[in-house]
Amino acid sequence: MDINPILLLAALMVASTPILLAAIGELVVERAGVLNLGVEGMMIVGAVCGYIAGHSSGDPYLGFLGAVFAGAAVSLVFAVLTQFLMTNQVATGLGLTLFGLGLSALIGMRAEGTPDLTVAKLALPILSDIPVLGAILFRHDLVVYLSILLVAGVWAFLTYTRAGLILRAVGENHEAAHALGYNVRLVRVLAILFGGGCAGLAGAYISLVRVPQWIDGITAGAGWIALAIVVFASWKPWRLIAGAYLFGGVTVLQLNLQAEGLKIPVEYLSMAPYLATIIVLVMIRAGRAPASLGKPFHPSS
């Protein structure tokens, strides 16, 4: 066996991070009762803007920051259309994906090539010296840590804070939340912006760390996986980690098994990530969607 389990597990975390980031953003959006199918579009705009910002400034962190803003800016289009002009969320979200793919190709036309940027790995002191675990968990770049902190933060926010409670109320029953005097549209717009920012960051992680370069269509469907994982994780933050790491893990594992020359037809290995994710997440009891998910809301009604 040439597979090194430590390297494999470390690679798993890198491969899963973009999906996890996009998924945690979408989770907040959906918990607020909005279905934004434009994750892929926001991701890829984040990818190209992050690439350009990082490349022109020479600082990858400025790249990430630019991507967050770019993703949020694109999501603002969705927010205005669905929250104020009352367009259909599904259609608008799909449109946002197509728009994002086209826009990124346009922006990225002059941005071919390879950045000379490297995002430094940040070995956490003491923790990274733990045998085995240290190499797997604690020698990554900042964004990997950030993605996990975000999940924890979102969980704490939704579970323990008043603002989180309001957001969930808006997602469960926007009429009631409105009647209680909460500004449903404001909450939703903020959630959509958060989702856009996360998707943008996820895209930039692909174009600045994982690949790292800009090529048209670089996200290659990761946004759709993120969407699926939100559903399969029953809208619960911690399960997202399980879903994303499982998907990323099996993706990396199947490549390793292929290289190993395992006697399993390659087709099965290639579909393994999707199958495994679906099976496991269905098994851990499918949850209930936020009751107002995808329904339009207007304060006058």
Partner: peptide
Amino acid sequence: KIIWIFEWLNPAKEADAAKALIEQGC
């Protein structure tokens, strides 16, 4: 060591495949 990715162009997958091969000693 051969890895099939079933696509002509998918940078993320290509990068993952290359990393997997390198980690296995190629």
